[in-house]
């Protein structure tokens, strides 16, 4: 899928001339086998393959195991590990200050679905241009395995505690609230996650990416509905996803009706090969119905659930000058003497 720039011998450079190493971060301190580490790997690959300059990227997070992970990818990008559940507002502020940045936020199911649900709701509603990943394992790992609001009804904790409250479906919520790109995938599905991450980078607007990422320490046992084995058995892909970046001039020869093509903001294309039925990810009503039906069967619908490439993002609604607000000069931001004099005259 990626195009390689003319490479020096023995080195694999991407189209802006960077090695994969340029996209790596610090060493992970998460548990061995944690789904979150697999996600960090896919993020590194996706930004490398898309040829994104890491210095344009800002990595945002809240608090929790998931929120630690931005330290483990794109080490040369700025990062902000904010407070619990409140990454959306900090990310929104950063994007207001500098609209040329590319924001990726990593949160967890507690950070988003419990303490941060208010800020999550308003981020989706505003369609702030950023990728918002929920590394979803249905439990609080860092505080040793308590239930989170995405734990399924009847799911059993390692301690034997049974969850008797219904889960919040963060994807259904995001679609309802106006997020313009909503997808779900599984940390064990390398191919699907890679295609979705690259499409997410190409999209302009809020990308809500729910990644089921089993907690190997606290929620990977019999009775858990977010264990590796359960998710593998109940993963219900809505279609086979291929991503064609705008810089790849690949012509695809699928037969008519076999694939649905979605053109993203930067001209990249998402090709959706239908597996069963006629799932249309541009239809909000169908998306809600399918999420509801699969959930009631105890399955996870994965893939691109909903996309609306043309919805204006929050920054475009503000009609800002082209240059980042953060870098405007005093000449541009301090009105002249005549303006102050005029205001004073009106107050006399």
């Amino acid at each position: 899928m990626s195009t390689d720039a003319p490479a020096a011998p023995g080195r694999k450079l991407n189209r802006i001339g960077l090695e994969p190493g340029a996209y790596r971060g610090g060493k992970s301190t998460l548990c061995a086998g944690c789904g979150h580490n697999a996600i960090s790997e896919r993020i590194i690959e996706a930004y490398y393959e898309m040829g994104i300059d890491p210095s344009r990227v800002v990595k945002m997070s809240g608090i929790g195991c998931s929120s630690k992970s931005p330290a483990y990818f794109l080490g040369s990008a700025h990062g902000f590990n904010a407070v619990h559940g409140r990454m959306p507002s900090v990310a929104t502020g950063a994007m207001l200050a500098n609209r040329t940045l590319l924001a990726i936020g990593v949160s967890g199911d507690g950070d988003t679905g419990a303490i941060g649900i208010g800020q999550f709701v308003h981020l989706m509603r505003r369609n702030v241009p950023m990728i918002y990943i929920v590394e979803n394992n249905g439990c609080y790992g860092l505080t040793k395995g308590q239930l989170s609001p995405t734990a399924d009804l009847g799911s059993v904790l390692k301690s034997g505690v049974v969850n008797d409250l219904p889960p919040i479906d963060l994807c259904a919520l995001a679609i309802e609230l106006g997020a313009s790109f909503v997808a779900r995938t599984f940390s064990g599905d390398k191919k699907q996650m890679s295609a979705l991450l690259k499409a997410a980078i190409a999209h302009r607007g809020t990308v809500m990416l729910d990644i089921i990422s089993p907690c190997v320490t606290f929620n990977d046992h019999e009775g858990s509905t977010k264990s590796y084995s359960y998710v593998k058995d109940h993963d219900e892909p809505l279609g086979e996803i291929s991503f064609v970046p705008y810089f790849d001039d690949i012509s695809v020869d699928y037969g008519p009706g076999e694939v649905q093509e979605v053109t993203l903001h930067d001209g990249s294309r998402l090709l959706l090969k239908k597996l069963a039925g006629d799932y249309d990810p541009t239809n909000r009503v169908i998306a809600r119905r399918v999420l509801h039906e699969t959930a009631s069967r105890g399955e996870y619908a994965t893939g691109l659930l909903y996309v609306e490439p043309s919805r204006p993002d929050f920054l475009s609604l503000l009609n800002l000058v082209d240059r980042p607000l953060a870098f405007l000069t005093p000449d541009e931001t301090r009105p002249g003497r005549d303006v102050l004099e005029q205001i004073m005259e009106e107050l006399r």
Binding site: R86, T92, A94, A97, G118, Q119, P324, L325
Partner: peptide
């Protein structure tokens, strides 16, 4: 913003990014 928490969160995000 949706509340005062977000109001200051946004201001800090912007301040961090140089505004």
């Amino acid at each position: 913003a949706e509340d005062e928490l977000s109001a200051l969160g946004m201001a800090l995000g912007a301040g961090w990014a140089g505004a």
